[in-house]
Amino acid sequence: MLQLVIFYIFAAIAVVSAIMVITRRNAVHSAMFLAATLLSVAGVFLSLRAEFLAGVQVIVYVGGILVLFVFVIMLVPSDRVIFERRYNRQGRIALITAAVLIGELVYAVIQGRDAFVFPEETLEPAVEGNSQWVGTVLYQNYLLPFEIASILLLVAIIGAVVLSKKSKPGGEIAVEE
């Protein structure tokens, strides 16, 4: 019962803040509501006993990605944007598409409800502690994907540096002599 109450509190905060993210005029407000959404999703992770992922969510998403967002929002002067229209002209089409999507997904979840009933015998984790369990599986069975992910991050770093180099008005990237 308490679990249900906690889930509803976190879910309500997450959904309301997510709606705020896409409706606020000021991008900084959107970023703050995104932080609220991400933190309450971390709470949902905790209620699913994924403590490691909850920590990663707070550290990487809120502490890393969101700070990056706020930095870029500060770099890009937004006082002109505030007085412009927020939505493009395809708002109605977007709502219809989203309604079809949510109807379809909820229908699939409700219809497939019986497929979610799993046998009661729950395997005990091989080791104590969620972080240790994740780490063991990650480094033993998924070492190659892990290394590929690190290469992806390296490429992303180089790409971000190259993209945000100062460029000439002609559009070509200026090479520092």
Binding site: I19, Q90, A98, L101
Partner: peptide
């Protein structure tokens, strides 16, 4: 779905 609406309808 909220994310989809945001991607499809916002201009920023």
């Amino acid at each position: 779905t909220i994310g989809v609406i945001g991607v499809l309808s916002r201009r920023n």
